[in-house]
């Protein structure tokens, strides 16, 4: 399995290959090394790597590993590959279309703004229900095509996004 692991602000590509009886780890383009883990207590683990061995205290929650070792505490994040790829790209321009006919209630971004995936951009009202439209990806707002109070039809293009700020 191959994943990106973030540690102290750096990204590492870590590959773990498990075959019956042995596990190898490859970091970036370095040579693979045999690795193993032995659980001593709930938090205490022994990590074996080649000839080397280290005792660490560790807790894992979701994609985060919290490790105390070498008199320090570290936080390691394992990045999901789909999210990683989505982070790394942000290519073509895209549009946010109305999921249903309705009216614009509030606009929380402006043309030219840099927005992050998931950031709320517009609240619309339809069938007495408020819906918040969020940025589908990282990018810049190319245009907001409706004003608060404006009505629109289903599939109307409400907001356009661009990868780069358009001059």
């Amino acid at each position: 399995m191959k994943r990106r692991i973030d540690l102290l602000g750096s990204h590492y590509t870590v590959t773990i290959l498990t075959r019956p009886g042995e596990t190898h780890m490859t970091v970036d383009t370095e040579a693979p090394r045999p690795v193993a883990i032995t659980k001593v207590t709930d938090t205490k683990h022994l990590i074996h790597m080649g000839e080397n061995r280290a005792q660490v205290q560790m807790a894992v929650k979701g994609n985060m590993a919290y490790i105390r070792a070498f008199d320090r505490t570290f936080v390691l994040g394992i990045v999901n590959p789909v999210e990683q790829a989505a982070q790394e790209t942000g290519s073509s321009s895209t549009t946010i279309c109305a999921p249903m006919p309705g009216m614009v209630v509030e606009i929380t971004a402006a043309a030219g703004d840099r927005v992050a995936k998931g950031q709320p951009l517009m609240t619309i009202e339809s069938m007495k229900i408020l819906t918040v439209l969020t940025a589908p990806k990282n990018g810049h707002i190319a245009g907001i095509l409706f004003n608060p109070g404006d009505a629109f039809d289903k599939n109307a293009v409400l907001i356009t996004l661009a990868e780069k700020k358009e001059m």
């Binding site: 590959p81 790829a85 790209t89 599939n155």
Partner: peptide, 27 residues
């Protein structure tokens, strides 16, 4: 991709890059 994943339903997912698409296929 957006047409087929949001309007026609001919596709199920739209992604921004080949890399993302391949990661999604893996998922």
């Amino acid at each position: 991709a957006d047409v087929h994943s949001t309007i026609s339903g001919t596709a199920d997912y739209a992604v921004d890059s080949e890399k993302e698409g391949l990661a999604l296929v893996r998922e």
